[in-house]
């Protein structure tokens, strides 16, 4: 290990903030929601507040700073909604695929459906998502592939066969 990198005290990731200000929390979470496609400031505000409420209820974990914990909740919130509307188990590979489909850009108006009451917009979104959800492999059909035996050449074996052929027994 290159010790000199550690001794400098400069870490690759910025140092964690133990007690982040509201400004920082709203700023980072807002930026995250915008990257996910939520552009309406009111929707960003509503989602961020919901995330912060839920994050506050979570037990503290030393591995994650408060902001990281809140960001994890963003994903949870999205997954929860997707699991409900698409009737998918949590956690599951299909749910991750649904999240990927949602974020892939096939349905840029998805936040509208998220905030709208159930109706045509939601149905259209769900149809679009169902088509876009990736299917990496077909369902498995287990087949056996028995290991074959390849018998090496053996001089002794050859002599034995010859012996049997010549003298029987």
């Amino acid at each position: 290990m290159d010790r000199s990198k550690i001794s400098t005290g400069h870490h690759y990731l910025a140092p964690p903030v133990a007690a982040p200000s509201s400004e920082l929390l709203f700023g980072r979470l807002g930026a995250y929601w915008q990257t996910l496609g939520v552009t309406d400031p009111a929707q960003v505000q509503a989602l961020t507040e919901q995330v912060l409420r839920r994050a506050a209820e979570l037990p503290e974990t030393p591995a994650l700073d408060p902001l990281a914990r809140a960001l994890m909740v963003c994903g949870d919130l999205l997954d929860e909604w997707l699991a409900r509307v698409l009737e998918l188990p949590r956690p599951s590979r299909q749910l991750a695929a649904a999240r990927a489909a949602l974020l892939s850009g096939v349905a840029p108006d998805w936040p509208k459906a998220l905030f709208a009451p159930p109706g045509e917009a939601m149905d259209h979104l769900l149809d679009t998502l169902r088509v876009a959800i990736a299917e990496p492999t077909p369902p498995p059909i287990a087949s056996a592939m028995p290991t074959q035996r390849i018998r090496s050449f053996s001089l002794l074996g050859l002599l034995r066969v010859l012996w049997r052929k010549l003298f029987g027994g």
């Binding site: 964690p16 980072r28 930026a31 591995a63 994650l64 990281a68 809140a70 960001l71």
Partner: peptide, 20 residues
Amino acid sequence: LQRLHALFWSRPPADAGALP
């Protein structure tokens, strides 16, 4: 994978250009 995603967004490195 998920934890690092949250960590990178909460504490963006200087060279992570994709992060706002």
